[in-house]
């Protein structure tokens, strides 16, 4: 049976792993390769690296660290940040990444998703979505979230964008619920369940994990395929082996090491 995935997310800025609260005030968390290896040893099922400043700064991901990670890591990893063209994606995939994730550039030019899926197959193409609930109760997407000064609200409804991204060839959706991100009060189950209802490809929850019980909830109640988290893993508050044990006890299928 297919296991639910536990995915530590490493936000990368200037070649270091950082973490902010609600996408702000970034704190240095350590070296990319060191952290990647630590999570692999602890039983992470997959890793995601977000070069959070690539898109706002108008550049693509630095190929060097992707290659360093790929040489050492024997679990899958996805790279995001400033991938604007098929060539950008090819560089990252050839450096050894298993998947690439697009966010801001896909909002600017949705056809990018089609082009990536045509070039590499849908299984390589992850669409990351940053989403926040507006005062009228609708969830809408945000853009350039790596830089608070440039973060932009769009008119596009999150659920519409999920449907469109999927139609265009997204092989996986990562839904970052910005309202709960960094607050550690649990995943946004309502939003994730709404996304799940129209998402036929794998859906990964992001934003809000504070304790092991939140992972149990998001798998049990929102039926997501993977749960992504950063600070609870970086701080050591949630340890992956203990987390997996707790998930197993709750009847949730997780990978046997």
């Amino acid at each position: 049976m297919l296991s639910r995935r536990i995915i530590p997310c490493l936000d990368v800025r200037d070649g270091r792993v950082v973490k902010g609260v609600r996408f702000r005030d970034h704190v240095d968390m350590g070296d990319i390769v060191e952290l990647a290896l630590r999570y692999r040893d602890e039983g992470a099922d997959e890793l995601v690296f977000y070069d959070i400043t690539a898109s706002p700064e108008g550049r693509s991901v630095d190929r060097g660290w992707v290659e360093r990670v790929a040489r050492l890591i024997d679990i899958p990893f996805c790279v995001a940040g400033g991938i604007r063209t098929v060539e950008d994606a090819r560089t990252i995939l050839h450096a050894g990444a298993d998947k690439i994730s697009v966010n801001t550039p896909a909002l600017d030019r949705p056809a990018l998703i089609d082009e990536l899926a045509d070039a590499f197959g849908v299984q390589c193409v992850v669409v990351g979505i940053d989403s926040l609930r507006d005062e009228d109760g609708e969830w809408r997407v945000r853009q350039y979230t790596g830089d608070p000064a440039r973060t932009r609200a769009l008119a596009r409804r999150t659920l519409d964008w999920i449907a469109e991204a999927q139609d265009r060839g997204a092989g996986e959706i990562v839904l970052n619920c910005m309202g709960s991100d960094g607050v550690r009060a649990g995943y946004d189950l309502e939003q994730l369940a709404a996304a799940r209802a129209l998402c036929a490809v794998p859906l990964v929850a992001s934003g809000g994990a504070g304790e092991a019980a939140h992972f149990v909830d998001v798998f049990a109640k929102a039926d997501v395929d993977g749960a992504l988290a950063a600070s609870v893993f970086h701080s050591g508050e949630v340890r992956i082996p203990a987390l997996k044990q707790q998930l197993r006890e709750a009847g949730i299928e997780v990978r046997r090491d």
């Binding site: 049976m1 297919l2 099922d45 036929a200 859906l203 993977g226 046997r256």
Partner: peptide, 15 residues
């Protein structure tokens, strides 16, 4: 073949 309980691509760890 996808179904509501069965996501395609098949992505992740399986036995």
């Amino acid at each position: 073949t996808p179904s509501p309980a069965l996501r395609v691509p098949h992505m992740g760890w399986n036995s």
